[in-house]
Amino acid sequence: MLLKEIAEKLSLKTFTPQVEMAKDVKGGYTSDLLSDVMGASKEGDLWITLQTHKNIVAVASLRELSAIILVKGFEPDRDTVEAATAENIPLLGTDLQTFEISGRLYNLLK
């Protein structure tokens, strides 16, 4: 499913309005441990996390993840937004907690 379609269906807000959202998402990965995401996520996964610092962009970019969703209304750090924009990683947000947003995304993609 296209990322922009997912963002609409899940009412996600975007912190990176300049970044292209017309990419295909095949799966998701939920984790707040960076080396877990590094080792176990798959290319194109939509990553759900509560981490808001810049290193999440490095991980998403290096692992070629499709986008990042911040949970529970967390706001990204300013340099996180700058890095995400520069690296073309859509940075999205939801007020839902991790369990709920993961479940909803799973239902959309299954």
């Binding site: 441990l33 590094m38 981490q51």
Partner: peptide, 15 residues
């Protein structure tokens, strides 16, 4: 707190 320190880095390297 930043999400490092899972003790998975060296195993990831080995894999």
């Amino acid at each position: 707190e930043m999400g490092f320190g899972a003790g998975m880095g060296l195993p990831n390297i080995k894999d």
